[in-house]
Each structure stands twice: as structure tokens, then as C-alpha cells.
Design a protein around this nucleic acid. Sequence first.
DNA 1: GTCTATATACCGATAGAC
DNA 2: GTCTATCGGTATATAGAC
Lengths: 193, 193
Amino acid sequence: MSDDRRVETTETAPPTGREAVERAALEMFEEQGYAGTSVRAIAGAAGVDPALVIRWFGSKEELFLRVLTLTEKPVPDLSGPRETLGERLVAFALAPGQRDVRRDLTALVRASDSSSVRSRLRQITRTLFVERLVERLDGPNAELRAHLIASQLGGLLQSWDVAEDQNVAAASRDRIVSLYGAALQVLIDPPVK
Amino acid sequence: MSDDRRVETTETAPPTGREAVERAALEMFEEQGYAGTSVRAIAGAAGVDPALVIRWFGSKEELFLRVLTLTEKPVPDLSGPRETLGERLVAFALAPGQRDVRRDLTALVRASDSSSVRSRLRQITRTLFVERLVERLDGPNAELRAHLIASQLGGLLQSWDVAEDQNVAAASRDRIVSLYGAALQVLIDPPVK
DNA sequence: GTCTATATACCGATAGAC
DNA sequence: GTCTATCGGTATATAGAC
């Protein structure tokens, strides 16, 4: 009575208890943030008892960290000509298809009062971005430059999110890709001095 | 019975009721963030009744917004040679003396689940930085470039804060000033293309 | 073992007495 | 104006039913 109940959990299956909680939690954390989402609301959306959520996942924060890993989200493609990598990174970050990634990062940043969340942010930046990017950088201080490029992208995402269709977001995406891409490119290319 | 009670509220005076609440609130919001600070704790530190805090300021969020305006904090000096403005902006942002400003901005970003807080962040960026910087920028898209420079600085501050003496923060400040300053400079100088 | 129901302790905010 | 008492909400932990 255990083995063959779920054949393939790719999609469309009515989620079982724990999985229903994880899906509801991810959606609500993305939508309303950590503080704005209660364990009761998650449990209600998943159709389980609130106490079970704590029972299964330990705490609200553990559930948050379990669900916001970004591991199943796409990562930027770092291959291709290095001369235009800056522009392509900006275009990737602002692409409509990456909205979920942006919302996840926003939720993590806004919950970063917790040191566990800050640690998770460092881990995501390092493993999903810096470690891959540093392989493509020549010249001195490659790792520091990769971290600073990550900082640039993080700042852009934050402004994009705070702007809410004003100022920055009102400008055409193409202009931002061109301008901000050039600023990234300075740290991609080996320093001249 | 009203006019001459407080002669000068510059400094050192034992803060009266409302002012004691504002000072305690600012310090605790900077230190522990919005969610980590309770109205009860603020009232306790200020020596007043918790209910009075709500009575005087309306709500916890209104008190937060009233206190986190950055209006009394120093602003970056935008005068001087424009060729080195990028480096000077980075040096200003990371200067030990600007720690309070960084903490205020961090507290605002982490509370930006609220649209009122996002609006305050936009206002601060615009009036304290973009409007002043745009006067020093030549070439097309000056306002957009100023906003993007603000994004770069915001991203650096966020990384600096999340890093916590690891990675980015471990590198020497001078190297960051040089590298990241050059990236800012690309948006300060008029675009070549 | 798995889940239900309940208990504790805190929060922001309010009503109403003084 | 000030403060006591309290309301409805939260997260978390536990006792006990199945």
C-alpha cells in the first residue's frame, strides 16, 4: 500500500497532502510575502489542518526556506559571445518569462531580516550564478567581479519591482538592456587598469 | 499654555513623550527591522503606554514611515570632477560613516511588502538622489541613467548587507570602489553609441 | 504512526473608564 | 489626555483520539 500510488509527479496530478502544502506555500509567499502569509492561510488553501503544516515542516520559516530554493527555475545562459554577455544578462533578468524568478528573489530579499534567509540568498547567488559566471571571466579578481555583477543585477531587479510601472519600468526594456548591459560589461571584460 | 515650553530641540534634551517614541522607534526599526520590532517594545523603551503609541501615531506602519525618511541623513556630494564621480559615489555608499543610512535603506527594503513603503523608497530615490544627479549628466536618457545608477548603488548596498563579512565584504573596500566605480562611470558618462 | 483538537503566549489595535 | 482591559489575530507546542 505504498509504492505505486504516484506514477509520475510531473504535473496535473491532484497534489497529495505535503505537496499541496508546498505548492500553496510557494504561491502565497510569492504573492503576499513572508509576513503577509499565515500558516493558517496556507493550510486552508491546501485543505489540511494548520497544525499539520508545523508538524510536517517544523516551522513557518523552514517551510519558507524549503519552498524558495529557485532550484527548479531557469538559470541564465552564460554561453555565447562574451562581448554581448552584459546585455544578454540584463535581457534575461527582465524577460517576462522570468517573472517567477523575480518574485522568488523579491520574497527572499524582503524576508532577509532572518539570517537563515540571508544565508539562503548567499547560497543561491553563489551556486546558481557566481560559480558559473566566474568560469567565463578572464583577468584579475574574477570572483569579486562576478559577485559585483550579481549585485548589479540584484539592484536592477529591486528597482524594477519597486518602480511598479513608474520611472524605470516605464522606460523601454530595450533601452535598459542597452544601457545597463554596458555597465555590466565593464565588469565582464578584464579590467584595463 | 503652549508656546514657549520647548526652547530648542537640537540635542541632549531628555526627550519628551512623542519624541522619545520616535527616537526609540527609529533605533529599534534600524536594529531589528519592521517585523522584529513590536509597538510594545517601542513603548517600553520610550517609557510610555503602548496604547498611546497607536493613539499618537495612528498605526505601527505610520510610525515606521514617519521615522524612516532619511531627511536628516547626509546625501552624497555630487560636485567635483565628473570623471571620478563613479568611484566617489561607491566610496560614499560604503563609507563607515554612512552606516545609519545603509541601515535605514535596508529596513525600508525589507519592509517593502507594503506599497506605502515602496512609495517611500521611490520618493527617497527620486528626491535625494536622482533629481540631484540628473543635473550633472549630459547626453540622452539622463533621468533613466540616473535611476539605473541608483539601482547599481542599491544592489551594492544589498549585497554588502547580505554578505555579512563574507564574499563581497571580505574584499578590500578599495578594490570594490575601483571596480564598481568604473561600472557606475559608464552610466555617468554620455553613452557612446 | 498519523492526524485532530486544544493550549499558550504574543501581536496590533480598540473601547471605554478615569 | 492618559491608561486599563480586552478583542481578534498570529505562531507554536502538546495532549490525546484514531
